[in-house]
Design a protein around this nucleic acid. Structure first.
Lengths: 192, 192
DNA sequence: TCGATTGTCTAGCGGTGCTAGGATCGAATC
DNA sequence: GATTCGATCCTAGCACCGCTAGACAATCGA
């Protein structure tokens, strides 16, 4: 029994190593640099080993995305919890979201720009994704305003944050005004 | 002289053919299906011919993106021009933007999701991109509200539209509520 | 100790973007 | 009208990609 347990443990360790290495490689040199050959070399195994853990590269991206969703949910909740009052909470949430996207561009790409084979807004949506949306909903739902469905409001707010995050990262928005854009968004969208 | 003119004309025709074919292929089967081999086969030339017109695939994507920017600018201006009053104009603009993104997903991808090697928000930004932003600014600047810089407001509104467009297209937002999300966005962001 | 099973690797398939170098064709010259 | 010569285009191939079949070695149970 103990032998089998050890093997399972080692296998789980290796899976974590694959994901951590893929993520590191992606953050350092972009997802294009994350090839199965390079990834295999970094973990000091041959390519086919990757395919005994994941169906393919897409599934590796998807796994990194799920990790990222869990981290983002935690970051958003942590930021919101230390703020006083709805307004400060929403501002903190927005800053935390944009900060996460800026600090983990490759992970954010895995979540939203790349195809990780994940289902969204459906019944079979993975739990971390649903929970990340729930984390937004917790703070945003209370400032949706009268007669506005909290989910719908959260979707719109989220979309705005997502737009700011992606356009900023792609160099499509001047970097110096990030804070002012965030404040404008919160001031206008949230009903306080 | 006439011979040279004819050659230049034929060359320009072929360049247009390349772009139209690339765009058609991308809209039908996605940009992944736009390989240099397939593209060359469709236009009935060999691969290297593509490289006598463009530096590489990235530059082809960039050229399609510029085409798209011009079309989007025209679509947005046309929609705004037939609406009465600032509120109707902003709503029409938002619908036109999202409609363009939904109807031309591959072109929208070329503009914002893929790397077309284009510079944004810089001095050497291509004219069509600056003009597309200007088209948004024309209608959005007047509803920015007191003390809010029109460019900044346009950036935020644009980011929100971009977020809605990309998340909707990726299946990350329930499709049935598109119109309600648009209305909520316009109601909250624009100062009327 | 021996067969079976599990795990891993080598080698290779068909595809990608891109390019060097040779063939071909048409225009200009004699 | 024949001939040179330069522009134009294609064949063939490079290095790389994601992915997999099949050989091989190590380990386990009988």
């Amino acid at each position: 029994m103990s032998v089998q347990e050890r093997k399972e443990r080692e296998r789980a360790d290796r899976e974590r190593l694959i994901l951590a290495t893929a993520r590191e490689l992606a953050e350092q040199h972009g997802w294009d640099a994350v090839t199965t050959r390079r990834l295999a070399e970094r973990i000091e195994y041959s390519q086919p080993v990757l395919y005994s853990h994941f169906r393919g590269k897409r599934e590796i991206i998807g796994a990194v995305a799920l990790e990222g969703a869990a981290e983002m949910a935690a970051a958003v909740r942590a930021a919101a919890s230390v703020a006083d009052g709805p307004r400060a909470r929403v501002t903190a949430l927005a800053r935390a979201y944009l900060d996460f996207a800026a600090r983990n561009p490759a992970v954010y790409d895995a979540m939203f720009q790349l195809d990780g084979g994940l289902a969204f807004a459906k019944a079979d949506t993975p739990e971390p994704l649903k929970d990340a949306f729930a984390a937004l909903l917790e703070s945003l739902g209370v400032v949706a305003g009268d007669g506005v469905h909290p989910e719908l409001f959260t979707e719109v707010f989220w979309a705005a944050l997502h737009g700011l995050a992606t356009l900023a990262r792609a160099g499509r928005l001047p970097p110096e005004d990030t804070e002012r854009r965030t404040e404008l968004l919160v001031d206008r969208l949230a009903v306080l």
